[in-house]
Design a protein around this nucleic acid. Structure first.
Lengths: 337, 337
DNA sequence: GCATTGAATGAAACCGATTTCATCCAGCCC
DNA sequence: GGGCTGGATGAAATCGGTTTCATTCAATGC
């Protein structure tokens, strides 16, 4: 019943624990015969490696942490999927934590990462409230990488993201190009979510570039859920002068918005044009299919892992920065004004 | 730069490491003055607890593992969300792993749980191929609990699940009740996914109960994705004698199926009735809203955590079993034959 | 006043790996 | 044959906590 330890294995194989450890992690340092003998003994005796002991001894765990703001089938699912897949391939276990959009929870969880001496952390849904904390993590030897966001040069943090500002600008401009003049925006809370602020700014800038004043009544800020999208759209439709196009800066909200339009007996895009953001899979299956901004969310996860590995292996504190392209996916939810 | 250890804290506080450890985990064993002094020193010196050392010393980690078959915005998202939330409240970190419906990956990951001496594991998407392995885990002291599934009495494993057979029976029967006689089924691969098999069996039993022969041409097995649902439905519609109702035993597939119907220029439910399974949030927002089987997936996660905690604390090997109710959510995707 | 009790603490033995440094030895060169 | 080289291995310190058992000491009971 008692677990076999590396000492026991060593004894049975007539070698020292050091040799067993080497056979496990640096096989090339051990002669073929010895190695095979050790492997056989491990198999036959059901030896189970103790990760905690290893982590303690190495003063470092190989676990990488992933922070997401919410679990419920989010737009980050595919990013997380990619992270898991690539980390698994490289032998790094991942530990996903849910911050629930709460900076305090995020702070607690970051501390846990420190306690586990994790190899690194990938932060999606970067929350500016903890910027200082995150920077100090990096100093304490925890490699941090921000995903889905790009950061100013002045912030010495690594990231793999998209230009939310630019993407929102283009999306809005597309609606304007179609002739819409009253364009609504449904977006996440600007104060808490950097992503949301950047998208808002892009929207506002696009309007301004065409000399259209930004009407605050047309902007609604809510956490990105379908229900919130629906409620927001209902409100916009009840306006004395409702918008002719709405940019929902999250597909989840766009889906809710679409339902709101339907419920009111109106049609997309005939009565109102609708633009989403993120390009989650579901947008291909809505009726009509949703025009949206494609975010390479799988690639973000994939590259986040490689950059993070790179940081871990090199050990230099140099921030890696990568900005990926977004793309307007023209489907059927937008039409000429 | 070097990390402060518990020894250092002890020295600064003029006490032994044992006392510091107690102040941290069993405050009632330490006098108020000592405790507060220790807490102050910890704060001022930025002491960071070393989880690996603790795990090693305790021969046990507090991490609980969660296995899901796929990350991409799945039906398990809400279960996982609940697990995270409740585990967080109780101070148990969770580590989510993605088995990708692959028994071999699952086996590897289970072994990792052993290596980490995890407190317990919750398995959604139970894969029968590893049943023996899982049972042996339990013997090795790793508490396992199966979620989303119920198991025969003969299998000494804990679970919190639903009766997939019964639920599928009821769903199918509802369609039959509406007068449909050619009812198609789109379901996961029966050979790999227990859930899929049970749902298939429920479907077949419902037909049989009414003396309707089960036409193999009407049954399509695919992994539950929207795309697969769409392709499956296209195939059913191209049949010489297509079904008048289809039971997609996963909402994701139902959503894909709905798109296929639309693409063919037909309508739900006028031309074909459609029933889903799981009741993911999207189903409220499809057009028409999808009639489906509600699974209490948040509750499953919540209860899974409490039962697992119970198992961990009691230490007895007694399996906990819990079967929750499902419910037919009648929306607008089914009509009289 | 003495034995008893219990709260607060400390000493020290672990937990099970990793890794540095040293050792041994065979083969090779000159 | 002596000095080198480099591959294979071992000894032992170390990582940073936890926990058992013993000890101290003040308060309590009779």
């Amino acid at each position: 019943m008692a677990q076999i330890t590396i000492q026991d294995v060593a004894q049975m194989a007539g070698v020292s624990p050091a040799t067993v450890s080497r056979a496990l992690h640096s096989p090339h340092l051990v002669s073929k015969a010895t190695r095979e003998n050790i492997e056989r003994i491990i198999r036959e005796n059901n030896y189970i490696y103790n990760a905690a002991a290893a982590d303690l001894s190495r003063r470092k765990s190989s676990v990488i942490g992933v922070f997401i703001p919410t679990t419920g089938g989010t737009v980050f699912a595919s990013t997380v999927g990619a992270i898991e897949e690539y980390a698994y391939e490289r032998g790094f276990p991942v530990m996903v934590s849910n911050t629930r959009y709460d900076p305090e929870i995020e702070a607690v969880l970051l501390h846990k990462c420190l306690e586990r001496r994790m190899a690194g952390v990938i932060l999606t849904g970067y929350c500016q409230a903890n910027e200082e904390l995150i920077l100090s993590m990096a100093e304490k030897g925890l490699h941090c990488l921000v995903a889905w966001e790009i950061l100013p040069e002045t912030v010495p943090l690594s990231y793999v993201g998209i230009d939310n500002y630019q993407a929102a600008f283009e999306a809005t401009d597309y609606l304007l190009e179609l002739g819409h003049r009253r364009v609504g925006l449904i977006v996440g809370p600007r104060s808490g979510i950097l992503r949301a602020r950047r998208r808002y700014d892009g929207y506002a800038a696009a309007l301004e570039a065409r000399g259209i004043p930004c009407d605050p009544a047309l902007v609604i800020e809510r956490h990105p859920t379908m229900l919130n999208g629906k409620e927001a759209m209902s409100r916009l439709l009840r306006l004395p002068k409702p918008p002719t196009a709405v940019f929902a800066a999250s597909d989840f909200m766009a889906i809710g918005a679409m339902a709101a339009v339907r419920e009111r007996g109106l049609r997309v895009p005939e009565d109102i044009s609708l633009m989403g953001f993120d390009d989650i899979e579901f947008t291909n299956y809505t009726s009509p299919p949703l025009t949206t901004v494609r975010v390479p969310s799988w690639d973000i996860g994939h590259l986040a892992v490689s950059l993070l590995m790179d940081m871990i292996e090199s050990g230099d504190g140099v921030p890696r920065r990568l900005c990926l392209d977004t793309q307007l996916m023209l489907r059927k939810s937008c039409s000429q004004a």
